[in-house]
């Protein structure tokens, strides 16, 4: 399952997500971690350290405040509440489109060109990659079939991206002769 996990490892703003979770009411750090893991963690739960370092950053920036401290508690017993500035920050984050990532296949492109330059089998490199992509797509499809709606949506996101890569691999395979001529020109 390590490969599946790898697909999820996109950049997620943990700070904004925790802030958003606080909008429904003040919570302890432990509750925040549990809510995050349940809704977004999948098989990649947050570490306690991540929660507390994120909360102290949010506190420093005035996006959350300490709503109360349980008697006898250390810093981990703090209850956090979102501030007006925090609510504005979440709203701004939600309304800002994510930067579309061009996913330039630079490593693969380099491998293909190098293979052509050194008279190796470039089609073989593309097929090996294609096979690896489909192997992961099969694992995700299987997981999707057995999972709940959240699993399906997450796996679909990964599957559509992998499919796009595969289309690039196919198109490049079909253009190898042309590319070989340019490389050797």
């Amino acid at each position: 399952m390590r490969r599946i996990r790898h697909v999820y490892s996109g950049l997620m703003s943990i700070g904004h997500t925790l802030l958003g979770l606080l909008e429904s009411g003040p919570r302890h750090g432990y509750d925040l971690k549990r809510a995050f893991d349940e809704k977004f963690g999948q098989d990649r739960p947050l570490h306690y350290g991540q929660v507390y370092s994120t909360m102290s950053r949010l506190l420093k920036n005035g996006l959350v405040e300490v709503d109360g401290i349980e008697a006898g508690g250390g810093p981990e017993r703090k209850r956090y509440a979102i501030t007006e500035a925090g609510i504005t920050d979440v709203e701004r984050w939600l309304g800002t489109p994510e930067k579309p990532e061009p996913y330039l296949q630079s490593t693969l492109y380099t491998k293909v060109v190098l293979a052509l330059l050194t008279r190796r089998d470039a089609a073989d490199i593309l097929d090996t990659q294609r096979s690896e992509h489909l192997r992961l797509m099969r694992a995700l499809t299987e997981r999707k079939r057995k999972g709940d709606l959240a699993d399906q949506l997450i796996c679909d996101h990964a599957l559509f991206h992998l499919e796009a890569d595969l289309r690039w691999l196919e198109l490049t395979a079909a253009r190898l002769d042309k590319l070989a001529k340019e490389v050797h020109a």
Binding site: L134, M137, R138, E163, L166, R167
Partner: peptide, 8 residues
């Protein structure tokens, strides 16, 4: 379609 082939 690769996503269809992924059922194989």
């Amino acid at each position: 379609e690769a996503r269809v082939a992924a059922y194989s």
